[in-house]
Design a binder for these strands. Structure first.
Lengths: 196, 196, 196, 196
DNA sequence: GATGAATGAGTGTTCATTCAT
DNA sequence: GATGAATGAACACTCATTCAT
């Protein structure tokens, strides 16, 4: 007795989800090049063959991860944009970025690693480019916010803002303990989100 | 008649230098895992065998690179420490860091990539750790400078300073063009190197 | 539809058996160091990759061979021990040893070759040691038999017995033809298995 | 000022002797295949290049060793043949063989190892054949001795004699300690060198 | 004679990917 | 859909041998 179409779909969804999650774990632990397909399949508790039924290969798995990372970022940005004042919007970005690093430093680390992939790595540079482009989109939205905030030179301001957040994120992910997160957030807020 | 010892030493030095330089180029272009020994040897115009006469393997080549990177950083820090006032010292660090990224964005990128290696990459994590430790040493020296500068909470200040520099460096290396370097340097100077 | 577990096991058994047998042939023909993995795989009609699915490497293949050789010897010893009189027991050892060399002189040669591996061959000395230890075990069992036989100095007697058998085996394996096997067996029996 | 011809020859002789001796040591320690030319040259304290001036390669070095081994054996046989009675002759062979193993068990081991080289090892089988042929020559001479001794079936007797000596040698070289050498020699003498 | 830098063919090993079942 | 046996290309590394000096 064959499964119904819906049930089949659900099985597919679950299997795919399972594989993707396992791949993320293994990539984050061992890095893309050290993660073998066998590792991922074993982690997911499926056969290598099945993995290839759902994903064309290792690269596509990474592509999925990058895609969902980008969606995550865009989600934060959209939620921010929906807020009333530019000050609140920027604060939301600060919180989103810092909390994310704080709770998942290894994930931040992984994507930064990917983002800094050598440009001529023909296999992966595509993904670092996608991430960088997302950063650029984020930058544009921030510019708009700073413009509304009424600061002079909103582009420069946005650049400073991004630099500050990335610098702090890097430091947090490198030394995850003892980082005075609250203070830093407040400092960022004072420096960037208010006009005297 | 065999070559004299000195002559031989010179030949060895040159060959080694040549190989190291080529390895750097290839690593930076293609990344560690995509750079094959054959690539490096070809780039150096040398046989694979000779490469192994001078280096035990791929890893040692990377080790050499990391070592010289660390020495480069320590050199900047020592030159800074030798200056008269904490203000000048910090300014020297700013200049050293920013100019370095500006002139060799790919090299900065490469080492940041290495630094963000997943921790369980047994092969490379050793090197990311070495780089992180160097960053920690740098941090300690900076604390001292801020202390002399007479700011309250010099540790927090040093943390902010490092975050700022790393953030900016990351942005510069990602978008090497159009970055308002002079302005940023001046801003950093105003933010961190003077006491009102 | 995947193969059933049992079917898969059978396939694995067959493949493994095939590889092991081919490895034995190639090792015996060309020697361990001259037998390349490619040789063995080709002989087995199998890809190099598959070989590594079943064996961790060249050394493990040899390990398997040594293991089964030891089991072969212990089998003869056990069968001997199960016999009624010491005289019969020793006769069984003589027959087992001589017949084995006679029917597979090259195999005897191979293991003797392995047993005489230079002690500092870090790779192989482990296996020569295992074989020597088996010989020592055999020696102990023989001592017991001679003791039951009621000879004076059973240890010395066992030593002579082993020396004689090894000497004869070496000669047979070196000059496999024309060796007066029956006579020699009878002589050994008269010399060692009876008490006047 | 060029060296005189004689002096030159002497230098050559010494250098060659030095290399040959070192090669023997290294071969005996690590085995032929694990001994690299670099090892041998280092042990001899000369450059790889010089080694190739005197020997065409690794194989020729081994050839030299085998040659001198054969001469050693023939020397014992000639000294034996020069003695007055067959009984004394055989005793001399016993002493020569056993004492040799006793004093240099590793060397015996090495040559037995070489002798048991797989027949299809195209590189080394030539040498194992040379050694086996020498053993055959020795066998012929022994036959003559046994004939003179007046035993029936001197060929069979010689075969037994060789088997006994090889068996004992193998045991001594494998368990160099505690072997009751004197007793064994006496037993051999009683078994083979006297007629009742 | 003497050196050791340089070569390159050969080998063991890994792993993404395919496909018969 | 699901499996895992099987493949083979790619790679790191070794070492006997050559030759310019």
């Amino acid at each position: 007795m064959p499964r119904s179409k819906e049930e089949n779909d659900r099985v597919r969804q679950l299997a795919q989800e399972n594989i993707r999650t396992s791949a993320m774990q293994v990539f984050i632990e061992k890095g893309y090049y050290n993660a073998s397909i066998a590792d991922i399949a074993k982690r997911a508790g499926v056969s290598k063959g099945l993995l290839y039924n759902y994903y064309k290969g290792k690269e596509e798995l990474l592509g999925d991860m990058v895609q969902s990372r980008i969606e995550e970022i865009e989600d934060v940005m959209q939620k921010a944009a929906a807020l009333g004042t530019p000050s609140e919007q920027l604060k939301h970005i600060i919180d989103g970025a810092i909390d994310n690093v704080l709770h998942h430093p290894k994930i931040y680390r992984f994507y930064l690693h990917l983002q800094t992939q050598p440009e001529e790595d023909l296999l992966l540079s595509r993904y670092s480019q996608m991430l960088n482009e997302e950063m650029a989109r984020q930058f544009q939205l921030q510019c708009e916010m700073f413009r509304k905030l009424g600061v002079p030179d909103p582009e420069i301001r946005s650049l400073h803002f991004s630099s500050a957040i990335h610098g702090i994120s890097l430091m947090i992910s490198t030394y995850p303990e003892h980082y005075p997160v609250r203070q830093v957030k407040e400092q960022l807020f004072r420096d960037f989100c208010v006009t005297e």
